[in-house]
């Protein structure tokens, strides 16, 4: 079973929920940090990293002596990563999506494959189990291809030895967030009962709903803000699976990199209950 922990915006406590689930999960579970722009699950789990490899994307390079300035590559590329500017062929490598179209279309064979470093994938083991993460190169804007490399590593890992998977997704509802949740069995939306929290959670719910996956909500800092989040969940038939109380101690533990589920017995019980509900909900709706 794959569970993705997502949120409409950053700072809702998504990562601490992921880490806590890993901590209490019954049976083997692999922790995956797909928030490649700002990975921080490792700061909670403290894994020992045992392997790492770079991930690349194929981009074009040009041999100007062969180019006839026909402009076909420029017309084809919808991202304008290659452009015939008057008589000058220009490459904007950072804008290339790696589709390879220009290389295959060039009638003169003037374009060939080069690579751009996207970032790295690393893996290891913590006392909570296996761990995999991706980290986007600083200055790189495209996370989905790196996320695919992380997922490929994950597939190898769970094929070798079956395990459940807890994914810490990037915040938001844009392409990377959708990419993270799309092949999971269950989506957990972490939010807080403030006006911004409600607004961003609605966006996330609407963005992910078309995928028709079981979804559940975790309300963090419950007790602050107002009741709007509860009204919305009720109206949309979205089940609230857990509420983490608003408590200064919890906030401090979080700031200190503690896994909330490990800080007290009531918290441990809260997350054990959450894990149980997730397993039931995902199991039930997956097998349906």
């Amino acid at each position: 079973m794959k569970v993705t922990v997502a949120s409409g915006k950053g700072g809702t406590g998504k990562t601490t929920v992921s880490a806590s689930l890993i901590s209490v999960w019954p049976g083997p579970a692999v922790a995956v940090d797909l928030d490649v722009e700002e990975p921080n699950l490792h700061l909670f789990l403290h894994p020992e990293i045992s392997g790492q490899r770079n991930a690349f994307m194929e981009i074009p390079k040009a041999d100007e002596s062969l180019c006839s300035r026909c402009g076909q590559c420029s017309d084809l590329c919808q991202f304008k990563a290659i452009s015939l500017m008057g008589e000058v062929l220009m490459l904007f490598p950072e804008m290339c999506h790696g589709c390879g179209g220009c290389i295959s279309i060039c009638p003169e064979g003037a374009l060939s494959a080069d690579v751009r470093l996207l970032g790295d994938v690393s893996w290891g083991h913590s006392e909570k189990g296996d761990f995999i993460m991706g980290r986007l190169r600083i200055g790189e804007a495209m996370s989905p291809p790196l996320m695919r490399a992380v997922k490929a590593r994950l597939e190898d890992r769970i094929t070798a030895s079956p395990a459940d998977v807890i994914i810490d997704a990037p915040p938001g509802v844009s392409c990377p967030a959708v990419n993270a949740v799309m092949d999971s069995d269950m989506i957990l939306l972490v939010t807080e009962p403030t006006p911004f929290g409600v607004y961003d959670m609605k966006l996330a719910h609407q963005a992910f709903a078309p995928m028709k996956k079981p979804m559940g909500v975790v309300v963090n800092r419950a007790g602050m803000g107002n009741s709007e989040i509860y009204d919305y969940c009720k109206a949309e038939n979205l089940e609230i699976l857990a509420e983490i109380p608003y408590d200064r101690r919890i906030a401090e533990d979080y700031a200190n990199g503690c896994i909330i589920a490990d800080t007290s017995e009531p918290m441990r019980q809260l997350f054990t209950g959450l894990a149980e509900k997730i397993r039931q909900k995902a199991g039930r709706e997956v097998s349906r």
Partner: peptide, 17 residues
Amino acid sequence: GMGQGGMKGPGRMGRGK
């Protein structure tokens, strides 16, 4: 959008001007 991808120089080729 994709814009924050940094300010690297373009891989410029051409016949000069």
